[in-house]
C-alpha cells in the first residue's frame, strides 16, 4: 500500500465521519466543524488517489488548493448565518419542522 492510497483511505474514513456528524449533530457550530472534516476527507481522496507510484499529479493539487480557499469562504458564510440566527432568536440550532 503506497502512502497515496493510505491517505486516500484515511480521507474516505474522514468523509464518512464528517457525513455522520453533519446528519447527527444539531449544534450549528459543531455541524460546521463536521462539514469541514468532510471536506478535508474529499481533498485527501482527490490528491491521494491521483498519486500512484508516489509521483504527484499537479491537476488535483491545484483543484484542492482552490477548494480550500472556497471552503473557508463557505465556513465564514455559514458562521455569519449562525451568528445572525443567534442574534435574532437566541438559538444555535435550526428550528424543527412542525408536522
Amino acid at each position: 500500500m503506497t502512502s497515496g492510497l493510505l491517505f486516500a483511505s484515511t480521507g474516505a474514513l474522514l468523509f464518512a465521519l464528517g457525513l455522520a456528524g453533519v446528519i447527527l449533530i444539531a449544534h450549528l457550530l459543531r455541524r460546521i466543524l463536521a462539514f469541514n472534516v468532510m471536506g478535508s476527507g474529499a481533498f485527501l481522496i482527490l490528491v491521494g488517489l491521483a498519486q500512484d507510484n508516489d509521483i504527484p499529479d499537479p491537476v488535483p493539487q491545484a483543484m484542492v488548493l482552490t477548494g480550500i480557499v472556497v471552503a473557508v469562504a463557505a465556513t465564514a458564510l455559514a458562521l455569519a448565518l449562525t451568528r445572525r440566527l443567534h442574534a435574532l432568536t437566541g438559538e444555535v440550532e435550526l428550528p424543527r419542522d412542525e408536522a
Binding site: 502512502s3 497515496g4 491517505f7 484515511t10 481533498f43 485527501l44 490528491v47 491521494g48 498519486q51 508516489d54 504527484p56 493539487q61 484542492v64 488548493l65 480550500i68
Partner: peptide, 10 residues
Amino acid sequence: AWARLAAPDI
C-alpha cells in the same frame, strides 16, 4: 499529510 503527499502548495 499534504507534505507527505508531496503537495507543499496545499
